[in-house]
Design a protein around this nucleic acid. Structure first.
Lengths: 200, 200
DNA sequence: CGAGACCTTCTAACGTTGTTAGGATGGCTG
DNA sequence: CAGCCATCCTAACAACGTTAGAAGGTCTCG
């Protein structure tokens, strides 16, 4: 029975098409335009078909979030190859903020309160891992012992989120937010280097 | 005609009641429960009455945002009286994050993407002013010249937002987020003190 | 080869949301 | 006392997420 294989392939294919259509709508028209019927017509189906591939809208959006993180990691790949660790840190800071600026609506669902917080955290795991790795090689390179490594990691991660969210409000703008991310990161790192004496 | 005066008073009164009811619902049941009909029944009116006091839902929510910021500033008042500038800085950092944790749903509309970014910025003006003032007296006290004051101010403001938003996801929790805010702020300040030589 | 099962897809519908229109009611002004 | 004006409610509209049930085509098996 080759038919079931083909059917499964077609199923997976339309599923993928739905995700792509949803992503396209989200990026081009914003989160308010991301409606089930709108997505369905974009793939030339009726609305209930979407529910054959996703339990509900949140599940679909969650897929977009995962896709967004993959995309972000891919775009960060190039910056991750910068050999100098300090430069790499700053570069990844500004590049991640740049991503947020170039995909504002996607970033909004990735880091906004549209989806459940725990799912959001799970989707962001690769990014967090990247930051952990970054921070370890940095501290190794400079013989800095962080009093609390996880804490420092969360601070870096939270700071980047903060700078990116700053980029969406009037006075700041994205290129400035990128600069802010670099400056903030530089200041943080300098602050950690400044307490070589072991204090809390 | 004393009647018109009384009518205006009554109008303002129900308007206030609507805001209070909306705030109550938001804080107790979250943003998804904050619906026009729900608010209307809470003040024992029918839904359209709300539109006699607010142009649309966003205008009403905006009022909640403003209310939230007033509340936050009030709760921060005590911390702002700490005489030592460094302690004051750290205290305000952790207290603002604490506010976010104690009023999660209110904070969500204050800093989430529910309302327009520009309006959000305008509503946050008092908080930003407070940070500006804090930063000037701090830099004066330590003879630190910030290369770019506005930049430093935005960094502080964004960092606090970032730490607060960190408090809503699984692994972190509020008391830890408060700690993170203090640590981040301490590290930032130490970083700025570390470059007394004037560099960008 | 044909009958029955299955998978896919559609149309309709339900309940809820924000919001508007039109009519009733009741108190103030002349 | 007549008329106006503000206030309030019921009813409705469009759009949303989501579900039920019927229609159609495709494959499987006797």
């Amino acid at each position: 029975m080759p038919t079931s294989a083909r059917r499964a392939r077609e199923r997976a294919n339309t599923r993928e098409r739905i995700i792509e259509a949803a992503l396209h709508i989200l990026e081009n028209e914003g989160v308010t335009a991301l409606t089930i019927r709108r997505i369905a017509t974009a793939v030339e189906y009726s609305a209930p078909v979407v529910y054959q591939h996703f339990a509900n809208k949140e599940a679909l959006v969650l897929e977009l979030v995962a896709h967004g993180h993959r995309l972000m990691m891919a775009e960060l790949q190039q910056a991750a190859e910068e050999p100098d660790i300090d430069r790499r840190f700053l570069l990844l800071a500004s590049e991640s903020v740049r991503f947020a600026g170039e995909h504002p609506h996607l970033y909004q669902v990735m880091n906004g309160d549209t989806v459940d917080a725990d799912e959001r955290l799970r989707a962001a795991a690769p990014m967090i891992d990247l930051l952990r790795e970054l921070l370890t090689t940095w501290s190794d390179a400079h013989d800095v012992v962080l009093a609390d490594f996880d804490e420092a990691c969360d601070i870096v991660w939270g700071t980047l989120s903060g700078m990116a969210s700053l980029g969406r409000i009037g006075t700041v703008g994205n290129e400035r937010a990128q600069q802010l991310a670099q400056k903030a990161m530089r200041t943080l790192l300098r602050g950690w280097r400044a307490d070589l004496p072991v204090n809390a």
